[in-house]
Amino acid sequence: MKVRVHVSLKNGVLDPQGRAIHHAIEGLGFAGVKDVRAGRLFELEVDDSVTDAALEDMAGKLLANMVIENYRIERVAG
C-alpha cells in the first residue's frame, strides 16, 4: 500500500525558503497570499504488514528532524 509522510516546519521556525517563494508568488502578480511555508512529501510503497509504529519510527528518526519539523502520516488506500 501507499503511505504519504508529510513533513512540515514547526510553528515558530523561520522558513527563509518559504519567504522567498512567497516573494516570488507576489512577483508573479498573485495577490492575497498571506504566508508560504515549504515542506516535503514522501511517498512510500510498503507491505500491508508495516505497522503504524514502524512508520512513526521512520518518520521520527529519519524523514523529519524533530528539532525543527513535524510529520503527519497518511495511509492511502489502493
Binding site: 521556525v13 523561520l14 527563509p16 525558503q17 522567498a20 528532524n65 528539532v67 525543527i68
Partner: peptide
Amino acid sequence: LTEAGLLPGALMRNAGI
C-alpha cells in the same frame, strides 16, 4: 553532529537564502 544527536539544535538554510 546535530543530525546524529551529538549536539543540540539544527542547521537551517541561511536566512539570506
